[in-house]
């Protein structure tokens, strides 16, 4: 019981993912600034932002809206992000949870934050939030199938295993999945899915700052907004870690392995940030077409190649 609680709340659960996620979000902002030849924010800025929102700022509730739902949805977003973090990081840190089939659970837990953002946005009663919410829903529908196809490809490559620990073991005893043609294709598709899941720039139309002024989050302030920020930080760590576990050999936490783990994580985040900084925002129609036609096609080609063992 004690160790389980430790797993969920401290390491590798809530506290650990929140701190690393905050640091990665600073890294994202810093790289963004460097790409634009700026200096970028100080190291602890994400934590200043979070504690300022949590402790200092006033929380304003929408006058015409479902107040309970509006307040509850950020809490559920943090819950979903943290739980998926625990289930991803336990196998990644070579702690077996004895839970076979966690891949399916992780997949569903990862959709919880996006869904709760939609619910929170729609319960705020703001028209711009409603526009953002409907866009987020369409985005979820377009990338979820693609993400499932990526997972299917991974399952085929790892001899029908739906246990994340087993998948990492298969890669560590052989070659990492990214070392094959199908693995590279799956990696490309997974990166674009991540981009959409994190609502980063080519697919940030639910938040679209310049267009619908932060869309789904427009009414949030104070503590609930701090919760949303926290869930974003956590997802910013957990999703790249998930890709690392699925395709890039996981981690070995001894000696030089720690350095490799950090480098792999930073490389994935760097890739996401660079895509974000070098692309314009696409229309929701274009995003749906992009995922339904091109990414699904790429994923299916990868699956076919994986069946033939390439």
């Amino acid at each position: 019981m004690g160790t389980t609680l430790f797993y969920f709340l401290v390491y590798p659960g809530f506290l650990f993912v929140a701190v690393i996620g905050g640091l990665l979000s600073w890294f994202d902002r810093k790289i963004t600034a460097r790409v634009q030849f700026r200096k970028g924010p100080p190291l602890l800025q994400p934590f200043y932002d979070f504690f300022k929102l949590l402790l200092v700022k006033e929380t304003i509730l929408p006058a015409r809206g479902a107040k309970g739902l509006f307040l509850a949805s950020p809490v559920f977003a943090v819950f979903g992000a943290t739980m998926s973090g625990v289930f991803i990081l336990l196998p990644l840190l070579n702690i077996t949870s004895g839970f076979h089939g966690d891949l399916i659970v992780i997949f569903y837990l990862l959709t919880i934050p996006s869904l709760t953002y939609v619910i929170g946005a729609l319960s705020s009663g703001n028209p711009l939030a409603a526009v953002g919410g409907s866009r987020e829903m369409k985005l979820i529908m377009s990338y979820e199938l693609t993400f499932l196809l990526v997972l299917a490809g991974i399952i085929i490559k790892s001899d029908q295993s739906i246990d994340l620990y087993q998948i990492i073991q298969v890669q560590q005893s052989g070659t990492p999945f990214i070392g094959s043609i199908s693995g590279v294709l799956l990696f490309i598709v997974a990166i674009f899915c991540l981009q959409a899941k994190l609502a980063l720039v080519p697919f940030d139309m639910p938040e679209a700052e310049t267009e619908i002024s932060d869309g789904i989050f427009i009414e949030y302030s104070g503590t609930p907004y701090a919760m949303i920020k926290l869930s974003k930080y956590i997802l910013f760590f957990v999703l790249p870690a998930f890709v690392m576990a699925l395709l890039m050999n996981g981690t070995r936490l001894e000696g030089i392995g720690i350095l490799w783990a950090v480098l792999k994580l930073v490389a994935v985040v760097l890739l996401l940030t660079l895509i974000r900084n070098t692309n314009p925002r696409v229309k929701i129609k274009q995003a749906i077409r992009f995922f339904f036609v091109w990414m699904n096609l790429l994923a299916i080609i990868a699956i076919v190649l994986a069946i033939f063992g390439l």
């Binding site: 902002r29 600034a33 700026r38 200096k39 970028g40 924010p41 100080p42 800025q45 200043y48």
Partner: peptide, 9 residues
Amino acid sequence: PRYDVERFG
């Protein structure tokens, strides 16, 4: 880039 207010967060 020249003035960059983000360096103060």
